[in-house]
Design a protein around this nucleic acid. Structure first.
Lengths: 209, 209
DNA sequence: TTTATGTTTGACAAAATTGTCAAATGCAAA
DNA sequence: TTTGCATTTGACAATTTTGTCAAACATAAA
């Protein structure tokens, strides 16, 4: 079934080319011909290595899901204080977003298209998520963060982080900003988000961001 | 050029059917045949009324842009205190989102596809936006809201409002919630967002949301 | 060199999709 | 009723896109 005698450089080339088209250029509906051209290979090699166009799309989507899981595990499995967990997550996400600005939108459109996306979290991740929620509630008791359902807190957090990235084309036009200005805006997100979410720190002025 | 002798019920029917497919069902790549079938009309009527498939898509996109502009004007042109402006916007958006859950994603994918989207704001809206930003800064001086660049504040606000709506398929799976639970979550957003953004009010407990 | 196996190619067929057009239909005014 | 015009339809052509297949190619082992 699987073809892997030689180094399957072509196989990997096709995948990474497709990923670039999807995640970097936003060509969510690229044809096999377009992908092949971009990779500089014959179109039918896509059928040879992946059976069908759909199979290639699915493969990339599944890889994306695994990356999502890794992210989630990163935030709940690490043994750091809440704030540092979140900081780590922000930094990681923003750096990834620089590389693959359309990644999240692609994942979303795929989910919408198939109308199915079962993330089967591993048991230990579920357990750690519960623990993470308890930690959050402790912070709320301390007054470090505003009291609310932990899931609402998480929604706030990822919304403020991810939305400005995935809606960039929309927002940049709407706010009438050029590329450089928007990059600066994104760079400022880290501090803004932390400032918005945590309350006990000194009220430093964020005007310069 | 334009065809409008009789009541153009068909014309409107096609548009609203297409909007439903796009905004309600997330069928962003519906074919002319699918749209015609959903509307119960002959496929070629789409060509008759809109020249081409693209023209129909563009028309709906442009209508969406106008709606976006209306929203923006609503928030800056009304003569209400900041907090009430934002409350009004939240309520309006959430009710619209219930009707057209995929609207924002559709708009985004169209922008990405065409890689162009010039929102030409009217002059008086621009002026009022500046005024709105000044009002925000006054609130920050008062301490009602956290100090940051007004545009970062607006990013925070619309992120926390819109993201949970547009990423619903993704988040619902990820958090493992059923439809009812997620609806409840969304219903709680209003108070959570206000709580997160405004600081001076009594620290009421949001556990029940 | 020959052989065997995995890889690549171009030609072809099949399917899907869009747009055009002439003819048919329906309806209101003359 | 007949005429004229907008609307609707089905047939057709053109294009795009995908997938298959046999043949060609490359390379390492026999």
């Amino acid at each position: 079934m699987s073809i892997q005698k030689k180094e399957d450089a072509t196989y990997e080339l096709i995948i990474s080319t497709a990923k670039n088209l999807f995640f970097k250029e936003g060509k969510f509906n690229a044809t096999t011909q377009e992908i092949a051209d971009a990779a500089g290979v014959n179109r039918t090699l896509i059928n040879y290595y992946f059976r069908s166009r759909d199979a290639l799309f699915d493969l990339i989507f599944e890889e994306g899901k695994k990356e999502d899981e890794r992210r989630q595990e990163m935030i709940v499995l690490s043994d750091l204080p809440i704030r540092e967990k979140l900081e780590m997550f922000i930094d990681y996400f923003l750096s990834q977003a620089k590389m693959y600005p359309y990644r999240e939108v692609y994942m979303l459109t795929q989910i919408i298209k198939d109308d199915c996306c079962i993330y089967d979290k591993k048991e230990h991740v579920k357990r750690m998520s519960e623990k993470f929620y308890v930690e959050l509630e402790q912070e709320m008791e301390k007054g470090t963060i505003q009291k609310m359902k932990p899931i609402q807190f998480m929604l706030n957090f990822i919304s403020m982080l991810i939305f400005p990235v995935i809606m960039r084309p929309f927002l940049q036009n709407n706010f009438e900003l050029d590329d450089k200005e928007y990059d600066k805006l994104l760079a400022g997100r880290r501090e803004v988000i932390l400032k918005t979410i945590f309350r006990n720190r000194e009220e430093s002025n964020l005007d310069s961001l």
